[in-house]
Amino acid sequence: MIFRSATISDLNEMQKLYVETIQSVCKNDYNTAQIEVWIHGVQNMDRWIDVINTQFVVLALIKNKIAGYGTLKDGNYIDFFYIHKDFQRQGIADKILKKLELEARKQNSKIITSDISITAKPYFEKKGFIVKAQQKNIRLNVELINYKMEKEL
């Protein structure tokens, strides 16, 4: 496994991983309407380009395929954190999280935060994150539940 920063040329593969992971991994925690609304965000190309251009983005690659990625916004917020549906439970998330936490420390952040899905909540709790609030987000008239979580570095 190798790690590198993302570039615009990685965008299509990152978006495909995002959609497929949500559809596959999150299907037990979110219904079809919620998943459709969640993945609808993939169509906001300006947002995705902004992520590549302004955030710390680390890709994990196995045989030149993106196995997972994480992004750090403003030095202290995990914006995107997805592991490919075929590469779950192989330690990839741990390695990406360590890299994001290291970058946050380099940027003098004392706390790292994120908005975490129901699916990912147990993982982040095991990594020392605590729930600050349950959030009900309305997107396209559909309610999505996630959790504001944080960890002291």
Score class of each variant (00 low, 15 high):
V51G: 03
G70E: 03
K148I: 13
E103S: 01
L61R: 08
F129W: 09
A93M: 09
T71F: 14
N146Y: 05
G91A: 11
Q135V: 15
E103M: 04
A67C: 03
G70T: 05
K98D: 11
F56N: 05
G68L: 13
A120N: 00
I111Y: 14
L102N: 08
I112P: 00
F80M: 15
I66T: 06
N141S: 14
Q88K: 09
R105G: 07
W48E: 07
K63I: 14
A104V: 02
Q55S: 08
V131N: 05
K98P: 03
Q88H: 05
N64Y: 03
A120I: 01
Y82Q: 01
L140I: 11
R47I: 15
K73E: 12
N108V: 06
R105C: 10
W48T: 11
V131A: 07
H84D: 13
Q43D: 11
G41V: 06
T54F: 12
K148A: 14
Y82R: 02
V58K: 07
V131Q: 07
I96S: 08
I92S: 04
T71K: 04
I112T: 02
N146S: 13
F81W: 03
V131R: 08
T54L: 11
V42G: 11
K110M: 15
P122I: 01
T113N: 09
A133W: 00
N44S: 09
N44L: 12
R47D: 09
E101D: 03
N146M: 08
S117F: 10
I130P: 08
K151R: 12
K121Q: 13
Q135A: 12
K98N: 09
H84Y: 01
D86N: 11
F56V: 11
I49E: 08
E143K: 13
Q107P: 03
I138R: 09
V58N: 05
K126P: 00
K151S: 06
K126G: 00
I78T: 01
K98S: 07
E125Q: 09
S114L: 02
N44D: 11
R47W: 11
L61S: 01
E125W: 02
E125I: 11
Q135I: 15
D50T: 14
F124P: 02
